[in-house]
Amino acid sequence: MNNAIVFLLLLSFVAANLPWFSERFFYVLPLKHGKHLGWRVLELVVLYFVMGGIARLAEGKVMGQAAAQHWEFYAVTACLFLVFAFPGFVYRHLWRR
């Protein structure tokens, strides 16, 4: 397996779990009443698109040209990102209490 692919998968795993480990919005802005599930899901969606941009740039650098993708690709990668976020969700909402 290509080192770039492994690095992107590990980076995606870390990014998917970031919203669950802090009470600050994007680790910067403190929220007055804490961070509820809606803020965490918003962070997760934004991080999905950030990781998509990073992967697109990496594909362009490694392969020379980024391939066109259809909706099926984005559906699968969004589900994979949600699966990557599962350990952080379990830690925050099921295990920590």
Score class of each variant (00 low, 15 high):
1 M>Q: 08
3 N>R: 14
4 A>P: 00
4 A>V: 14
4 A>D: 12
6 V>F: 13
6 V>C: 09
7 F>G: 08
7 F>W: 04
7 F>I: 14
8 L>D: 03
9 L>H: 06
11 L>E: 10
11 L>H: 03
12 S>A: 13
12 S>E: 03
13 F>I: 10
13 F>R: 06
14 V>E: 02
15 A>K: 00
15 A>L: 08
15 A>I: 00
17 N>K: 09
17 N>S: 00
18 L>I: 13
18 L>Y: 02
19 P>H: 01
20 W>C: 01
20 W>L: 07
21 F>I: 15
21 F>R: 13
21 F>V: 15
22 S>I: 04
22 S>L: 04
22 S>P: 01
23 E>P: 01
24 R>I: 02
25 F>A: 03
25 F>D: 00
25 F>I: 02
26 F>S: 07
26 F>D: 04
27 Y>T: 06
28 V>W: 11
28 V>I: 15
29 L>I: 15
29 L>S: 05
30 P>W: 09
30 P>C: 00
31 L>G: 05
32 K>H: 10
33 H>K: 14
33 H>Y: 12
33 H>M: 08
34 G>P: 02
36 H>V: 11
36 H>Q: 14
37 L>C: 06
38 G>T: 10
38 G>W: 08
40 R>E: 01
41 V>W: 08
42 L>K: 03
42 L>G: 04
43 E>L: 05
45 V>Q: 03
45 V>F: 03
45 V>M: 08
45 V>C: 09
46 V>R: 06
46 V>L: 07
47 L>P: 00
47 L>A: 03
47 L>D: 00
48 Y>F: 15
48 Y>D: 06
49 F>W: 15
49 F>I: 12
50 V>A: 12
51 M>Q: 15
51 M>W: 04
52 G>R: 08
54 I>H: 00
56 R>Q: 08
56 R>T: 14
58 A>N: 05
58 A>H: 01
59 E>P: 03
60 G>D: 07
61 K>S: 12
61 K>L: 14
62 V>Y: 13
63 M>L: 13
64 G>P: 05
64 G>S: 06
66 A>H: 11
66 A>N: 07
67 A>C: 03
68 A>M: 09
68 A>L: 08
68 A>E: 11
70 H>Q: 10
71 W>M: 12
71 W>N: 05
71 W>Y: 12
72 E>Y: 08
73 F>I: 10
74 Y>W: 13
74 Y>Q: 09
74 Y>I: 01
75 A>W: 11
75 A>S: 11
76 V>M: 05
76 V>R: 13
78 A>Q: 04
78 A>I: 06
81 F>C: 02
82 L>A: 15
82 L>V: 12
83 V>C: 01
85 A>I: 00
86 F>V: 15
88 G>R: 03
88 G>L: 00
89 F>A: 10
89 F>G: 05
89 F>E: 08
90 V>F: 11
90 V>T: 05
90 V>S: 02
91 Y>P: 00
91 Y>H: 13
94 L>T: 02
95 W>S: 10
96 R>P: 01
96 R>I: 07
96 R>E: 10
96 R>D: 04
96 R>K: 14
